[in-house]
Design a protein around this nucleic acid. Sequence first.
DNA 1: TATTTCTTAAACAAGT
DNA 2: TACTTGTTTAAGAAAT
Length: 630
Amino acid sequence: MMQESATETISNSSMNQNGMSTLSSQLDAGSRDGRSSGDTSGEVSTVELLHLQQQQVSFVFPSNLSFLYNPSLMQKVPVSVAMMTPQVITPQQMQQILQQQVLSPQQLQALLQQQQAVMLQQQQLAAQQIVFQQQLLQMQQIQQQQHLMNLQRQGLITIQPGQPSLSVQSLPQGLSPAEIQQLWKEVTGVHNVEDSVLKHGGLDLSTNNTTSTTSTTTSKASPPISHHSLVNGQASILTTRRDSSSHEETGATHPLYGHGVCKWPGCESICEDFGQFLKHLNNEHALDDRSTAQCRVQMQVVQQLEIQLSKERERLQAMMTHLHMRPSDPKPCPKPLNLVSSVTMSKNISETSPQSLPQTPTTPTTPVTPVTQGPSVITPASLHSVGPIRRRHSDKYNIPISSEIAPNYEFYKNADVRPPFTYATLIRQAIIESSDRQLTLNEIYNWFTRTFAYFRRNAATWKNAVRHNLSLHKCFVRVENVKGAVWTVDEIEYQKRRSQKITGYVPTLVKNIPTSLGYGAALNASLQAALAESSLPLLSNPSLINTTSSGLLQATHEDLNGSLDHLDSNGNTSPGCSPQQHIHPIHVKEEPMNAEEDECPMSLVTTANHSPEIEEDRDIEEEPSSEDVE
DNA sequence: TATTTCTTAAACAAGT
DNA sequence: TACTTGTTTAAGAAAT
């Protein structure tokens, strides 16, 4: 969501820049037209100039910064006029005005001052825009990093046995989370969007088509990429490179070399000649964890940009359609390939039997092309889960179910693919999606069949499983009301159960803190899960979401420790009140609570000593004295 | 290898 | 009586 927004805004920005330049050229033509047709004497009246100034002031604001600007001023200029108005008065125009001397010196002085003020305002706004874009980019980087970590944690970014490189899984041993953070800054360009685009050839979509093409090719062929070809395969790159004009001096060309500088992300080492560059490339950017990680990150960046490009193309198409213009570039836009999907798909194809592949004849929104779906796409983990094969990656790695289902709603709805979640998770999702957060059994059934094509068959089987889970898990609370019985979710119990699972991982995680990226990934996944799934206020606090990556990490620490802590705090805020009373205040049919749960604050230590099953399931619950009063 | 978790199947009871 | 709902037990697969 956040990333979507950020990308969108940045897209707007870039679009505006393009639009601006287009407008400028149009306006130059327009003003020329104005001189030639509307004003045969070649004179520009003062009124026209002042009007021009007004229009400039109105138009220096990109749309994505329009909230910074007084909208009333925008309304002063009709769109049709604004579209034909120059951004600023060109020096040539000013010179012409001066030469024609149609204005008095005082008027000219005033005009010049006005012009300077406008320019100053433009500069300030440009600075604001850059800052704004920096923030957006930073947020996007965090999202991407998180996404990457999640994928890595899920094991979705893996390599073929014969491909020893390009695995982010090799990161943890070589790079600390801080280094990864730095890596992101280096690769994606911490400075601003323009820097990111212009500095690294691979990211330049506007001016360097060759490198852009190279990057695209690289990304689409990502699975078979070998590090060898990337680092030591200059020759192959050289043969495919068409544009040699930009690389002077030796005449040798390389996408990673230009203007005597190594263009490896974050490097910028000065290399006097191409030979030195090659030496530098092989020495400094040889096959190691860091280079591999940088390469992977670069792939992610390219992927994001491709998605963005696709969006911008769609936007342009819509604009042209709206304006009844004929598209200047009718060629079909290349479909960005989900790098992750492509990587893991090949992995999965190789490791799954054909019949385990999704038999999805009705998958109009097959999620391997996430062009319009954002970062969260159906992962091959879910494609694993066809038929009786039980894979629950998303559960296991705490991938938020809502973020898994929501973007792929159409897919699950139409494809006979088993969702990679347990029955308990799905039931809970069904319940919390409902308006009252309570559903009858039949409504739960309906949710299953409505949401997942997979559950439109073998009804007896899965319905039995649903009932079984409802009864088995303590987190599902049966509530009697006038209509009959409905089922609700005891979030405390549910989170407690999740927390216990997470806690179970703690010793390993703590052990790996210094070296393992997996720690951060697990925490991030945990945080994501908590943010997306938890209805508890602490982690749903936007202030925790809207934070820097370090803040995120901190927040994830809070999640690890605090997923229990906030349970604790909830309990503490109203001592003596059972968790169910928090959630089902009055009409809840009381399910007797374990006194221990009420009185004993959960802590990492105490929870770790608890066996999940002991408090988890009804069948192992307490003595009959505390049984349900049903 | 042992344990845990989850799924599936089934029996049974109560209510409609 | 048939069906739905809910509970419980058991077995087996997969994951840890």
